[in-house]
C-alpha cells in the first residue's frame, strides 16, 4: 500500500490534478473558478514535470558542504528549471485572465460564463 502510494501519488496525483483542473475548466460557470481550474491544471503539469525528473533517495542538485561533489546522486535539474519557467508563465496568464475577468464583469455585471456570449458565429 505504501509502495503504491509512493509510486502513484506523484504521477497519478498530478494527473488527477490535471483531470480535476480540466474538468473544472470545462464545467464551471464562474469565470474565476475557470481560471482557478486552469491554475490547477498548471500545477498538475508542473508537479508531473518535477516528478519525471525525480531519482529515488537523491538530493537537490546543489553542490554545497553537504554534497561537496557532483558524484553524489542528484535529481534531474532540467525539469526543475522548466517548471520554474512554466510557473511564471502560468502566473502571467492567470493574472492577465483575472484582469480580463474584471473587465468583462464591468460590462456584463456577471461572472457566469454562459451569459457572456456577445461573440458567436
Amino acid at each position: 500500500m505504501l509502495n503504491f502510494l509512493e509510486e502513484w501519488s506523484f504521477f497519478g496525483g498530478s494527473i488527477l490534478l490535471i483531470f480535476i483542473g480540466l474538468y473544472g475548466v470545462l464545467s464551471r460557470k464562474n469565470m474565476i473558478k475557470i481560471l482557478i481550474s486552469l491554475g490547477l491544471m498548471d500545477t498538475g503539469v508542473n508537479l508531473l514535470l518535477v516528478a519525471l525528473g525525480y531519482v529515488e533517495a537523491a538530493n537537490a542538485p546543489i553542490i554545497n558542504s553537504v554534497n561537496p561533489s557532483n558524484a553524489a546522486a542528484f535529481v534531474d535539474p532540467i525539469p526543475q528549471a522548466l517548471v520554474l519557467t512554466s510557473i511564471v508563465i502560468g502566473t502571467a496568464v492567470l493574472a492577465l485572465g483575472l484582469a480580463l475577468v474584471m473587465k468583462i464583469y464591468d460590462k456584463y455585471s456577471t461572472l457566469n460564463i454562459s451569459e457572456i456570449r456577445g461573440l458567436k458565429w
Binding site: 542538485p61 553542490i63 554545497n64 528549471a81 519557467t85
Partner: peptide
C-alpha cells in the same frame, strides 16, 4: 553551485 541556477 546550484545546478538548477546554472540551467536557468
Amino acid at each position: 553551485a546550484n545546478i538548477v541556477t546554472s540551467v536557468v
